[in-house]
């Protein structure tokens, strides 16, 4: 699953790209996770509105 690093120039993103999907799964996770926080904030707001 983890492949040898073959990028011409090492970089942070290249380093995250350790094999199939690692980089993208990481980026998607950081994009989606905060939505959970937004969810609970909005839930609280809706409850308080009642």
């Amino acid at each position: 699953m983890f492949e040898a690093f073959t990028d011409v120039v090492p970089s942070f993103f290249g380093w995250l790209n350790q094999g199939p999907l690692t980089l993208t799964i990481f980026l998607h996770t950081v994009i989606i996770l905060p939505m959970i926080w937004i969810y609970f904030q909005e839930k609280k707001r809706l409850e308080n509105e009642n």
């Binding site: 993103f13 980089l23 998607h28």
Partner: peptide, 12 residues
């Protein structure tokens, strides 16, 4: 451009 775009470009 660098290799990491393969993955970012493909998946997004």
């Amino acid at each position: 451009t660098p290799e990491y775009w393969w993955e970012i470009g493909a998946l997004f």
